[in-house]
C-alpha cells in the first residue's frame, strides 16, 4: 500500500501532459510523470518519494510510438522493455533492456522510465549513447530534440516539467554488429556488477558501461584507447579503465577490485566478439 494519496491523470496528448504538470506544480501538488510506474510505486511504498499527482504518459500515442520515419527509428518512451525486446526493431536496445529486473517486471517497466530511473544503472540508455541517438523532450516550454550526448550526463538533464517523449535513432545502427553483456554477482536476477554494450561501426568500436561507476557512461577517451589496434588488447583495456570518468564502485554486489576483474574479462570478450583484437 502506498501510504499517501495522490490524484491520477492520464492525458491523451503531449501538450496536455505538459500543461497538466505546469498547473499541478503551481498548485503545489509536486506532480510526477508516471510511465511504467514501478519505481514510483515501490519507492513510494517506503515513503522515499512523495507526490500528490501522477501524470500517466502511457495513453499518449506519441509515447507509445514505434515507427521508422525517413530512415530514423522513432521509439516512444512508454514502450515497455518487453515490447522492445519482443519486437526486435532494435536488438541492441531490446537485449540490453532485457537484462533489467525480470520478464514480468519488464512487462511494466518502460524505456523512458528506465532511462530516468533513480537507481544508478539506467541500462536502456547505453544503446542510445552508442548510436548517437537524439531525445525528443517536451515540457511546459514546448518541445525540443537534443543529441543524447548533450542531454545525458550520468543522468538525463530535464528541465522542470519536462519529460521524454521519444528517442530518434538512425536506422542504420540497428543493423550493425553489437554485443551486450550483463554480469551479476551470482544470481540470474539482480542489479549488475558490470553491464557493457558495444557496437562496431565503420570507424571503430563504440562501448558504453553501466554498473561500473556510479552512473552509466560512454567515453570518447576510453573508445580512442580501445581502438588503438597497434597496442595489445589487454594493455588497451588496462589503460582505458584508467580513463574512466569516475572510480569503479564498491558495494554489496562486489568490491571495486573484483568488479574490475570482471570488467576486464567482459571488455575482452566484447572486443573479441566485435573483431577488435
Amino acid at each position: 500500500m502506498i501510504p499517501y494519496n495522490f490524484d491520477y491523470y492520464a492525458p491523451a496528448t503531449v501538450a496536455e501532459a505538459a500543461a497538466l504538470f505546469q498547473r499541478l506544480d503551481a498548485e503545489g501538488k509536486q506532480p510526477l510523470y508516471y510511465s511504467g510506474g514501478t519505481e514510483i510505486i515501490t519507492i513510494g511504498r517506503i515513503n522515499r518519494i512523495y507526490t500528490e499527482a501522477v501524470i500517466d504518459l502511457k495513453r499518449i500515442p506519441d509515447c507509445r510510438q514505434a515507427a521508422v520515419q525517413s530512415g530514423k527509428l522513432v521509439l516512444g518512451s512508454a514502450l515497455t522493455l518487453s515490447e522492445l525486446y519482443d519486437s526486435r526493431v532494435f536488438p541492441l536496445l531490446g537485449e540490453t533492456g532485457a537484462g533489467v529486473a525480470d520478464r514480468t517486471s519488464r512487462n511494466k517497466i518502460t524505456f523512458g522510465g528506465n532511462i530516468c530511473s533513480k537507481f544508478i544503472y539506467r541500462e536502456a540508455v547505453l544503446p542510445l549513447l552508442l548510436t548517437d541517438s537524439e531525445v525528443r523532450i517536451a515540457g511546459p516550454g514546448g518541445a525540443r530534440q537534443t543529441p543524447i550526448a548533450e542531454a545525458f550526463d550520468g543522468q538525463l538533464r530535464l528541465g522542470r516539467g519536462e519529460f521524454v517523449v521519444q528517442t530518434v535513432t538512425d536506422e542504420s545502427y540497428a543493423r550493425m554488429p553489437y554485443v551486450t553483456i550483463k554480469k551479476r554477482k551470482v544470481a540470474a536476477i539482480d542489479y549488475p556488477l558490470v553491464t557493457v554494450a558495444a557496437l562496431r561501426t565503420s570507424e571503430g568500436i563504440r562501448i558504453a558501461f553501466s554498473g561500473v561507476c556510479a552512473f552509466p557512461f560512454r567515453s570518447q577517451a576510453v573508445e580512442r584507447m580501445l581502438n588503438r589496434r597497434e597496442l595489445p588488447l589487454r594493455d588497451r583495456i588496462d589503460q582505458s579503465i584508467a580513463l574512466f570518468p569516475a572510480p569503479v564502485i564498491s558495494d554489496i554486489k562486489g568490491s571495486a577490485a573484483y568488479r574490475e576483474l570482471v570488467l576486464k574479462l567482459v571488455m575482452e570478450q566484447t572486443m573479441r566478439a566485435l573483431g577488435g583484437e
Partner: peptide, 16 residues
C-alpha cells in the same frame, strides 16, 4: 542490514 529485501537478498530461481 544492507539487503533487507528480495531485490538484494537473492534466492535461487527457476533454471538456476
Amino acid at each position: 542490514i544492507y539487503n533487507a529485501s528480495l531485490r538484494d537478498y537473492n534466492v535461487i530461481r527457476y533454471g538456476e
